[in-house]
Nucleic acid binder design. Structure first.
Length: 356
DNA sequence: AAACTGGGCAACCGCCTTAAT
DNA sequence: TATTAAGGCGGTTGCCCAGTT
């Protein structure tokens, strides 16, 4: 729920003036509570004509009895012109979950993947909505893993440590792919980066987007990780397929984008140590270059410069299975596009944030 | 109709980091 | 190098609204 700037809700809300003020502006009398339309107008007028500059001086220059922090927060979370309004889309929801899975409660980082959304908004949405959905699915919202009791239940049903739920008759596409694996990054030239991460699937924790918007298909039998495929055909250009072919002797994880192969160097290794290519500008985290599935647009020659940049940013990932339940890695080393969400969201937003 | 309750969300608090001196 | 102020961020609070009793 977003309150309109002229909402009676704001007008009726009690606004207090605090004598002591905040610790950051203790010598001022500052208003607290919700902002009035008049205050908003003052702040907007000042910032649009002068920029915020030093926030601590904004209230004085703008004629506001607020502390600088409060002004900054009000601008960032509510008044900024580039803010997106309205409820979160299913795709935004998926991005939040995917990034949260990797970054945890780093709302500001998560919000960077959602243009027009603020960290506060994402945080509130998580706490009020997504968290409950995950819990309802039997997933721990902190770890995104199954709660032990739920895990046991699934295990009993499937006789395996991996399972899926793909009942087309309900709205829960929930892939429980329990074996964690470690990702370490490697530059294309072969130089190893000190980047590694361990991911405990499932990647997918959301109900499928309604068919009108997207289709999420799960194929195969997850038993022993064999022949599992995940296909996201939400858009014509983003469709991809991940295939886990598992056996005790030879296991694969194929990540196939419907984009044309970016590099012939891409390959999949055995022993469940698949190596995929990461392309920050392709809407897919993994581009194995194995085979294209379905239609896709061809690379335009005029994009050669762009492609060169893409090539430079490609990182080879090696994944290997691990059987402990820890899931830690150095978040600071994780580039936004190296996250699962990159599979699902528009490249435009990801591009901007790619190498921040 | 009134009271109660939970959800949603804007705003605040306090800690940490960074930049300036 | 130490100190201080400002900015940034995650956690939490408090208020209003809508639904329920």
């Amino acid at each position: 729920m977003h309150h309109c700037l002229c909402s009676p809700y704001i007008l009726l809300k009690k606004i207090t003036v605090v004598e002591m003020g905040h610790h950051c502006c203790s010598k001022q009398k500052v208003k607290r509570g919700l902002w009035s339309p008049e205050e908003d107008e003052k702040l907007i007028n000042y910032i649009t004509s002068h920029g915020h500059g030093c926030w601590s001086s904004v209230p004085k220059h703008a004629g506001l009895q607020r502390c600088g922090k409060s002004c900054r927060l009000r601008w960032i979370n509510y008044l900024r012109p580039d803010l997106k309004r309205g409820s979160f889309s299913a795709q935004e929801e998926r991005i939040i979950i995917d990034v949260h899975r990797i970054l945890g409660n780093r709302w500001a980082q998560i919000a960077k993947h959602l243009p027009g959304r603020t960290d506060n908004e994402v945080k509130n949405f998580w706490n009020s909505c997504i968290k409950k959905k995950l819990i309802a699915q039997g997933l721990d919202p902190k770890t995104h893993n199954l709660f032990p009791s739920h895990n046991k239940h699934i295990s009993n049903n499937n006789n395996n440590n991996a399972s899926k739920s793909n009942n087309s008759n309900n709205n829960h596409t929930l892939i429980h792919f329990q074996q964690p694996f470690t990702i370490s990054s490697q530059s294309r030239s072969g130089d190893m980066l000190n980047t590694s991460m361990e991911i405990t699937p499932p990647f997918l924790t959301l109900p499928p987007i309604p068919p009108s918007h997207s289709e999420l298909q799960v194929h195969g039998n997850m038993g022993s990780l064999s022949n599992f495929q995940y296909q996201d055909s939400s858009t014509t250009s983003n469709a991809m397929l991940m295939s886990f072919r598992g056996s005790k002797t030879q296991e694969h994880a194929d990540f196939i984008d419907n984009q044309p192969p970016i590099s012939e160097n891409a390959h999949i290794s055995s022993s469940f140590s698949p190596i995929g290519m990461i392309d920050e500008n392709v809407n897919c985290m993994w581009d194995s270059g194995f085979e294209a599935l379905g239609g896709h647009g061809k690379k335009d020659v005029e994009q050669s410069n762009e492609q060169e940049r893409q090539e430079q940013s490609m990182i080879m990932y090696e994944m290997e299975t691990s059987y402990n339940n820890s899931s830690s890695f150095d978040m600071e080393l994780m580039e936004p596009d190296l996250m699962p969400c990159a599979m699902l969201c528009n490249s435009s937003s990801m591009d901007q944030l790619a190498w921040d």
